[in-house]
Write a protein that binds this DNA or RNA. Sequence first.
DNA 1: TGGGATACCATGGGATTTTATGGGCGTCAA
DNA 2: TTGACGCCCATAAAATCCCATGGTATCCCA
Lengths: 154, 154
Amino acid sequence: MAVFLSTFENKVDGKGRVSVPASFRAALEQEKSTGLILYPSFKHPCLEGCGDERIEQIADSIDALDAFSEEAENLQTILSDSVRLTVDGDGRVMLPKDLIGFAGLNGTAMFVGLGKGFQLWAPDAFKAHREAARERARKSGATLRIVKPGGGGE
Amino acid sequence: MAVFLSTFENKVDGKGRVSVPASFRAALEQEKSTGLILYPSFKHPCLEGCGDERIEQIADSIDALDAFSEEAENLQTILSDSVRLTVDGDGRVMLPKDLIGFAGLNGTAMFVGLGKGFQLWAPDAFKAHREAARERARKSGATLRIVKPGGGGE
DNA sequence: TGGGATACCATGGGATTTTATGGGCGTCAA
DNA sequence: TTGACGCCCATAAAATCCCATGGTATCCCA
């Protein structure tokens, strides 16, 4: 199965183009995605990315709901905020201006692999986010040590 | 499968013409639609749009209902109010005046991708609607998880 | 094991093609 | 004849393609 791993820092040029990391392209091809999907994250100032598969699943799921229900409308916002980008011959995509704005990208973007999907962050925002996550991990790690003494700590 | 994604803002000229977004045209062609279908939404001040395939599904669904029920009669108005528009050589359609009036279009129209179909909104009305929907979507994160169990993504 | 050759990748800058949009002209019907 | 509508053309902006370059990792062979 295709997996997005590691973190890559690539440049966003004046035209809004970024190189998609080679390993991400390989993962996309493996799930037969001709392009990739991006949409603004609900939780963070970053973009969520994935292959075609996931969007089609979402579209199908919405279709299964009562067509005019509020629930369907909520989910539809994902679709209306999504963009489908095609990877050009050089392995790059063009980021729409509004998404660049949403994520605060300014010349550089970080591709963060999350397994079945990935995220796109502005470097500073990502570092802050990562620090916070590590901090939380460290604290919960302390809790774990208390629960299981004798385990190897950090 | 054809999927309508993203949101586009195009101009409606004095003749009532609008360019259909290129990616929407591609989706329509993919499902071999000779044109596109529009009908007034009965929930919102906007127009609902789709391709041939979708309208046939809707017709079938209505047909499956009890023929003389009130529900069936209500839904049948979708079909009687529908218009089929042909896309001209430049990728545009002509919006009938009554539909322009219904959606309150005034020089600009927003094409909103919703997966199997799409909507046409006046910009101001759409922005208000989108804000409300996003807010609800944010609060109903649990619902999103139900859509794709085992899937993830935050 | 070292050094050179090679392939791949990220990136920059044009050139080319697609889109969106405005306007004009002819046809058909009221 | 007048307006509505279909078709064609022109244009500016934007997206897409194509090629060139430099750097880095990989491979191969001595």
